[in-house]
Computed example of a mutant assay.
Amino acid sequence: MLPSLSSMASRLRLRQLRLLICLDELGSIHKAADAMSITQPGATKALNEIESTLGAVLFERTSKGLEANDLGRCVLRYARLINTDLAHLREEMLGIMQGHGGRLSVGTIMGAVPMLVEGLARLREEQPDLSVTVVEDTSDRLLSLLDQGRLDVVICRTSVSRRPDAYDSRVRHQERLVLVANPEHALAGSEQLDLAQLADSRWVVFPVNMPMRLTLEREFREAGLNFPQYPIETSSTFTTLSLLRQDPGLLAVMPWDVARVAVEHGMLVQLPLQLRSRSEPYEVVTRRGVELSGPGRVLVDILTIDR
């Protein structure tokens, strides 16, 4: 039977988790014991203690050595997360003690990437020794990572959350949306377009219920048109750009701040369609009641000033 959380927390030790990682990487009790400077019987005893604590066998003995089973791979994933978090903790503490540097984890939706890149450039001018992790994802996933403490600051839309009051939001930035395509698209040279001319086209769109998808659906609905059938759905900027570059028949609606670089370098063209609907503004978001680190406060100030 799976032990309680309090039992696991009181009995598991960081050194044990490190042993699991060594066993997975080396596939041998003997090699893992050498890597951790302990005896082989000591490593065997430690593995037995871990499996006893968790109430499950984590490794199977095979012709290739020790291999993690399904439960073992699950435990290893979290062991590595904890090990990484500990390294980040030391790095951030060292930066604070030295009076500079530290660590910052930031999340952003696709449309806010240029805004974040500009902000991080200014931040690193002030704090060049700062380590920064950037995650690009959907608003829903970014808020989940923020809730878990995996991200310090996110740029997204809090309206997708069931509890938007759990966050502090600063500055609302309105995206300008544009229709883009491959320069070889059949309509690339058009002087004017309406949505009806594009209804039968093939589209790259955001997944269902995401704000950008809802905006495009509203555009079609208000024009009295059915939403395109069989679109390719993705929230990835790189995937969208790659698809448009590979297939001259595809269309996509993107934030202008994101599409501009590709358009200016001739990789994409903006088609002359006037979009009536406006996407929901995105925000600079932090967890309510959680004090930011020094670098986090500086970044928020940079992102919100003069906007």
Rank of each mutant, 00 (worst) to 15 (best):
P3M: 10
P3D: 08
L5V: 03
S7K: 07
S10E: 01
R11F: 10
L12G: 08
R18H: 11
L23N: 04
G27A: 00
H30L: 09
A32Q: 00
A32D: 01
D34F: 13
M36I: 08
I38C: 05
Q40G: 06
G42Y: 10
E51F: 07
S52G: 12
T53R: 07
T53N: 15
G55R: 07
L58S: 12
S63Q: 10
G65T: 02
L66F: 11
D70Y: 12
R73N: 03
R73V: 00
C74D: 06
V75D: 11
L76T: 14
R77F: 07
R77D: 09
R77S: 10
Y78R: 07
L81P: 00
I82K: 14
D85A: 03
R90P: 02
E91Y: 06
E92L: 09
I96N: 10
T108K: 12
I109M: 07
G111L: 13
P114T: 00
M115H: 10
E118G: 08
L120K: 12
R124I: 14
Q127S: 14
T133L: 05
T133A: 10
V134C: 12
T138N: 14
D140L: 07
L143V: 05
L146G: 01
L146P: 01
G149A: 14
V153C: 01
V153M: 05
V154E: 12
T158V: 12
S161T: 06
R162F: 05
R162A: 03
R162P: 00
P164S: 15
A166Q: 15
D168R: 07
R176A: 07
N182H: 06
P183W: 11
P183A: 08
E184G: 08
E184P: 01
L187T: 00
A188Q: 10
L193A: 12
Q197G: 08
Q197M: 10
A199R: 10
W203H: 06
W203S: 13
V205M: 02
P207E: 04
V208K: 06
N209T: 04
M210P: 04
R213I: 09
R221Q: 02
E222K: 15
A223H: 14
G224D: 05
L225H: 13
F227G: 05
P228G: 15
T239I: 06
L241Q: 11
L241E: 08
L243R: 12
L244T: 15
Q246N: 14
G249K: 15
W256Q: 04
V258Q: 06
A262Q: 10
H265F: 01
M267K: 07
L268T: 04
L271K: 15
P272Q: 01
Q274R: 03
L275Q: 09
L275G: 07
S277I: 02
E283D: 15
T286N: 11
R287N: 05
G289T: 08
E291P: 03
G294Q: 07
V300D: 02
V300N: 13
L303T: 01
I305T: 02
D306T: 01
